[in-house]
Design a protein around this nucleic acid. Sequence first.
DNA 1: CGGCATCCGGGAAGATACTG
DNA 2: CAGTATCTTCCCGGATGCCG
Lengths: 219, 219
Amino acid sequence: MTGTRRRSYDEGCIAAHALDLIGDRWALLVVRELLLGPRRFSELRAGLPGISANILTRRLEEMASAGLVRAEAPGYGLTPAGEGLWPVLKALCRWGGGQPGHDPTLFMSPTALMLSMRAMCARHRAGRHEVDFVLEGQAFTVVTGPGSYRLERGLAGAPLRFEGGTNAVAVAVYGPLPLHQTAAGLIRFDGGIEEGQAFLDLFSLHIAEGGAAPVSRSG
Amino acid sequence: MTGTRRRSYDEGCIAAHALDLIGDRWALLVVRELLLGPRRFSELRAGLPGISANILTRRLEEMASAGLVRAEAPGYGLTPAGEGLWPVLKALCRWGGGQPGHDPTLFMSPTALMLSMRAMCARHRAGRHEVDFVLEGQAFTVVTGPGSYRLERGLAGAPLRFEGGTNAVAVAVYGPLPLHQTAAGLIRFDGGIEEGQAFLDLFSLHIAEGGAAPVSRSG
DNA sequence: CGGCATCCGGGAAGATACTG
DNA sequence: CAGTATCTTCCCGGATGCCG
């Protein structure tokens, strides 16, 4: 049987309502894995190695009945409501990047890294860059510009290209080492190293607070 | 004693890390109740009627050891890390407001309503308004301006003033009726009804994506 | 193999009663 | 007022098995 009546906060607060819909364990991480396009059941499992199959099945059912996910041709995709969760995930990334206890050596899915970069990019000072990524065989393209950030699956034959394990590329992006010291090791970098460094300099796990007003007063 | 080892997603993803810290049930709602200043244990319970005392105790302990909450003079307050969660809560509000199934007749805490308004205000087209609120005895002051929104506890003797039950005021703010039809009933409104309507027109549960202005319901 | 159903153990959530 | 103690309920998560 379906759970008939799911656990609810029973509040009129819209944040509580949101948490009624996507507050269950794994739910937002499933959204994360689907944000760049539909995925098959096994691909979802590969991106969420900690989830067990029956929990993923249950989550997908619940999220489908909540209107966030729908079964598609060979797998599952987000509905527009599900895609609307990107700002939530982005806010989580920007907050979580500043919190201690983060262990970048733990498993990271290619989608998770690419989305975290979209969340953490200082796009207001971004020049135009076209960058291809190949992370454990999965291809992505990033195009930055002043105030804009485009991220898609697939390759574009961009002048810059990173390839390697997701965690290794994450170290290149967020770690302290300059690109010319990183590239030789676990990842492969193609393109101009100066522009590659300029691109990587856009990303930091610790977001500058925006400068003006404290968060508690405005926002 | 402490839970020794808390459940974790064991991922390097920073969103997963964030959820490790504030993904537990009730955690973000506790943050919500504390965002406008410290609260006593009983005040937290009053703002979260669905939580039981032992769960609240446990959550506060865990959130304290995660560095989000600290025991203060008579109760509990947020640390800077905890206050940094406002963008997450704001994103949840803005997403949840557009999701079906929301029941505004359910319990709503004064803090929840005031924060939801800060999240949903179309502040880019806000004129300057000073508004006092008294919700079930709790006082708040809102000052809007173009692009700004200040919200604090306490009264400022503002020219506009709403008083009443939280849910009734929420209906006035988000509901379809114009102020002159609402005010007579469950809530009390003091001040110029035109300016009051202009103020209320800033708020909608459904955020227009590109910033297009929702239809005014004053006419 | 991909997807889903079922059974079971452990642990968190939840209700209630009680204590300093 | 601010929790603690205890009991029950339910969800999570692992293992297994069924069916396409």
